[in-house]
Write a protein that binds this DNA or RNA. Structure first.
Lengths: 122, 122
DNA sequence: TGTTTGTTTGCGTCATCATGCAAGTGTATT
DNA sequence: AATACACTTGCATGATGACGCAAACAAACA
């Protein structure tokens, strides 16, 4: 199959390769923010999160909004503070689905059946 | 634990959240190229790949180089043609490792033990 | 009501990057 | 050797985006 033919046959991989998720994580500052929130394991206010970054407070606020729109975080307003938390389940699910979708197209001669099956079709 | 404290305790998640991988996939054109190559399932020349995109040939060449540097593709030169292929194994492995690393920090009350364990620590 | 606190938004600036064109490099063919 | 082919690279341009500052907004508190 040629790449041109492959382009026209759609599958779950096309939705999972949506650039929005990757756009959210491609920035170093945002990656750091997400990393802190993941390791933190609880909902954090914007002020708290901004402590682990040297950028301006307003920048952190904007980054967190973007990460929420990308489906990585959730926000909950309590009084005047806004708490952001990682959506662990959906995030992991998306990454695993993407890995599965990619592995689905892996030719048999490249599949590694051993060690966790990183690339086992079906 | 505060986000600031979380920032200082390093783990595998910090390496896996490396923005380079996401930078490679955050562009719509590159995502499309990768999608075609994944579905294609074989090594393709630059000319072939450029057929499934409306952008200039040179742009595709640059994108493929970037994707190779990001560890998503491999290249092999045969005569005057260069063939790019998806590194299915490492790519899937990275995505799964990232999902595992994220799930590791998932608080117990958010874990979903059912249906494939999308967020099961360890 | 006025003030403080937590967060968002408008705006200007600078850097990065995707793109197309033209020119260059390297390899096969005649 | 000359030409054609596959690809890469230099350069200019336009668009996107990260950032900081200041102002605005909203909720609690005096």
């Amino acid at each position: 199959m040629s790449p041109l033919q492959a382009a026209s046959c759609c599958g779950p991989i096309d939705d999972l390769l949506d650039p929005e998720l990757f756009k959210a994580l491609c920035d170093a500052t945002r990656a750091r923010l997400v990393g802190c929130l993941i390791k933190c394991g609880r909902a954090c206010s914007v002020s708290e999160v901004s402590e682990c970054c040297s950028v301006d407070f307003s920048v952190v606020s904007r980054h967190l909004q973007l990460l929420e729109r990308a489906g990585i975080l959730t926000s909950a307003k309590q009084g005047r503070t806004v708490r952001y938390a990682v959506k662990y389940g959906p995030l992991c699910q998306t990454l695993r689905s993407l890995a599965d979708a990619i592995a689905h197209y892996c030719p048999a001669d490249q599949a590694t059946p051993c060690s966790g099956g990183c690339c086992t079709p079906r």
